[in-house]
Simulated assay, not measured.
Amino acid sequence: MRDRQASRDARRAREFEAFVAGAGGRLQHAATLLTAEAPDANPRARRLLTLALAHTYACWDRLRGEDPYDCARQYLATRFSRGTWHQYGAFGRARPHPRSPLAALAPQERLILVLRLYEGVAEEQAAALLGLPAERVHTICDRATATLLHPARTAAPRAMGGARVAPS
């Protein structure tokens, strides 16, 4: 009985290690995009990834044919969503790193954009995962994409001694 349990645990550990070796990098990149941290300094993204992988490992035996990557991605997204809401409020912003490609976006915009464009999650699936109407997900994704493609222009600095005033 013990030998069978040990064998099962060893097989489970090998399967999970193979999963992490194959999917860990992509999940890490997704978490880094979500947190808008610098790729080389991303403690919040690493924490998100660790929690998602721990959850996936805990559910490993119950997956029964389900995609473990999908399980990890769902947990990553919901944990980020809840964490952002509780830590920063409904409309709050974490301070993204200026080198992050998604630094200009709000957390919800980043989440939807990463799910839709980076992860390739269908609009309806993203909406169901986040508890939003599909139309809202579509609108947020369009707005986030427009923000990235057409960033706000900064005002040009004023020239010193520009226009002269004519004497009266």
Rank of each mutant, 00 (worst) to 15 (best):
M1I: 15
R2A: 14
Q5M: 14
Q5Y: 12
A6P: 06
S7W: 11
E15C: 11
E15H: 11
E17I: 11
A18S: 14
A18W: 11
V20C: 10
A21T: 13
G22C: 11
G24E: 10
R26F: 11
Q28P: 04
A31Y: 01
L33D: 01
L34W: 01
L34D: 00
L34I: 03
T35K: 02
A36Q: 03
E37L: 00
P43Q: 09
R44D: 07
A45W: 00
R46F: 01
L49P: 02
L49T: 07
L51G: 08
H55L: 02
Y57H: 14
D61M: 12
L63F: 09
G65Q: 08
D67A: 12
D67N: 15
P68K: 09
R73I: 04
Y75G: 00
L76G: 04
L76F: 02
L76A: 04
A77Q: 00
T78P: 00
T78L: 06
R79C: 02
R79Y: 03
S81H: 08
R82E: 01
R82D: 02
G83V: 01
H86R: 14
F91N: 14
G92E: 01
R93W: 06
A94Q: 06
R95T: 10
R95G: 08
P96K: 09
P96F: 09
R99A: 14
P101M: 01
L102Y: 03
L102V: 06
L102D: 00
L105E: 04
L105F: 09
L105A: 09
A106S: 13
A106V: 07
P107D: 07
I112R: 02
L113S: 05
R116Y: 00
E119W: 08
E119H: 12
E119F: 07
G120E: 06
A122H: 04
E123I: 04
E124C: 05
A126F: 00
A126E: 00
A127P: 06
A128P: 01
A128N: 08
L130N: 07
G131N: 04
G131C: 05
A134W: 05
V137Y: 01
H138E: 08
H138R: 15
I140P: 07
D142A: 13
A144M: 07
A144Y: 03
T145C: 05
T145N: 05
T145E: 07
T147G: 05
P151M: 08
P151F: 05
A152F: 03
R153I: 02
A155G: 10
A156H: 13
R158I: 04
M160I: 14
G161A: 15
G161V: 11
G162D: 15
A163W: 15
R164F: 15
V165W: 13
V165R: 15
A166D: 13
